[in-house]
Design a protein around this nucleic acid. Structure first.
Lengths: 120, 120
DNA sequence: ATCATGCTTAGCCATATTGCTAAGTAATCC
DNA sequence: GGATTACTTAGCAATATGGCTAAGCATGAT
């Protein structure tokens, strides 16, 4: 089913750098060439390229070279993989608290029953 | 407002390791001592401790030592920070596609108008 | 008091990450 | 053709990461 299952490790790793998050965020607003992405970072181009290739390997962006400029665009669908994992965790947690509440409710019921029977 | 704003860099960094994700996932089901978390990893205890301290610094878990055992529990609220950032990105993207669709709709309208006027 | 348990500290090793500069290549402009 | 632009490649340095072993240190059991 999952044709290109995105690697959560690559994904979170790519997102763990503020420069890369800023670049991705910028690309979410629309495609941009490398130099435009580089400008606000104040970093050297090779450094920026490195960040971009990390984002690309994580499938968070895709790039296409036309002439001498390389255009980068976000692949927003990939973020879904991260969101999905986070949602899974929340579900696990909620299942746990649900069980806990059910258990506490049972305790409460039994306590009430005890009070009902004076011979307890 | 945000008393302990979780650092997204620390957060995503902590989540970028499969061992740590597994340990966190386990803790979402309920608290556990270090040795229980260590067991399924097959790793040496110091290594596990290292992972745990990364999770703790990212505020994804909290630990408490009683006697000679240290109990670890998840801090699920922290995951919200990650979810929030991802949601922001999705919003940025959607705002962009909305603008795009509005633009395309405008194009469509103008084209229709042109067709309406035979002198175009 | 002794011993086992459950971390904890210290330190080492290999590799990965994040930045740089210098030099190269290919496309566009004049 | 020659200069300029926009990346690209190669390679280096500093630090971070992820694993280990060996030894230390309390606590709980006998």
């Amino acid at each position: 089913m999952a044709k290109h299952d995105p690697d959560l490790t690559l994904l979170f790793q790519a997102l763990s750098d503020p420069t890369r998050r800023a670049m991705l965020s910028r690309l979410m607003e629309g495609p941009a060439p490398v130099s435009v992405l580089a400008e606000p970072t104040g970093m050297a181009l090779p450094t920026v390229m490195r960040h971009l290739s990390v984002l690309e390997e994580a499938r968070l962006i895709e790039t296409e070279k036309t002439g001498r400029t390389r255009l980068c665009r976000a692949r927003p669908a990939t973020l879904q993989a991260a969101t999905a994992w986070l949602d899974d965790q929340r579900r696990i947690w909620e299942a746990r608290t649900d069980r806990l509440e059910a258990f506490l409710a049972t305790m409460q019921d039994e306590e009430t029953s005890d009070e009902d029977r004076p011979d307890a």
